[in-house]
Amino acid sequence: MKRKINFSTAIKEAMFESMKLDQKVIVYGLGVGTSGNIYGTTKGLKEKFGSKRVFDAPAAESALTAMGTGMALSGARPLLIHQRFDFMIYSLDQIVNWISLWSYKSAGKSQIPITIRTVVGKGWGQGPQHAKSLHSWFSNLPGVSVVYPSSPYEAKGLLLGSIFSNFPTIFFESRSLHASVENVPIKPYFLDPTKSFIRKKGKDLTIVGFGPSIVDALRVSDEIEKRKKITCEIVDLRTINPIDEKTIINSLKKTKNLCVIEHGWPNSSVSSDIISIVTKKVKLKNKPLQVCWPQSHVPTSSDLEDKFYFKISEIIQKIEKNFK
């Protein structure tokens, strides 16, 4: 049975279901179990599963990540939550020097099934310290999976898939998506966090996106199809590490036109990597188009913030100019 719920409720349901399915799931982080409840996503979790399996924590991101590594090493499935991505940077040493190489250096004998939920802010002056999205950094790193869901259905299934995967996952959430709504099954279900999929079929232009840029892709596609006699195919990456090349290449072989939309900086980014992968393997009809933030920090001033984030009309303009 399905019913419409929003993204943050879908996340909450995934956590409830995972804790019901397996008593080795442990949820923790700063703000879990207090009035904020990580934007409401952990509400009721501690009351239901107890303070041993759901606990609040000090502002000690490095040690909390290390703690998750240890929990995962000894058979638990820890879910660490960062209310704001920017603070997760404190734990880079643990992610890069320990978690990412654990399976490799043990020759596959030992695994770290940790999931790290991290929320990227957007709007109302979140500014340079609360709106960064460094997902591309982690796309560069062997040994971790990086997932970025685009809708409530994806969020629930991917979070369950990530928690019950035996490898480490960084689970990015865009705060801008938390209110979005979709039909989501009540029962638990799993989505493969290592595979991309075709969200919308089309013949003439492939728009590749992930996370919040899928909403942009859908809007752009609707608008363009109204104006021109073309159809757009939308590839929802779902995972940016590993990158599911096969799904992307198959779409491009058909459309031979590529536009990548990314909520992040353009340099050394997932979008530039997608363009590189595609242009090495497919002869395109037109130059590929990359839509990203400016290579600049996010402003706090609301007027400047408004100019910083790209608009649907701007993407359409670029597309119309690029693909004649």
């Binding site: 709007g123 259905y153 994806e154 705060r175 209110a179 979005s180 919040p212």
Partner: peptide
């Protein structure tokens, strides 16, 4: 599970 495509372009976004 298979992916869902219920999600359409008229999505509201979060007002912070």
């Amino acid at each position: 599970a298979k992916p869902s495509i219920d999600f359409k372009s008229n999505q509201k976004t979060t007002k912070l």
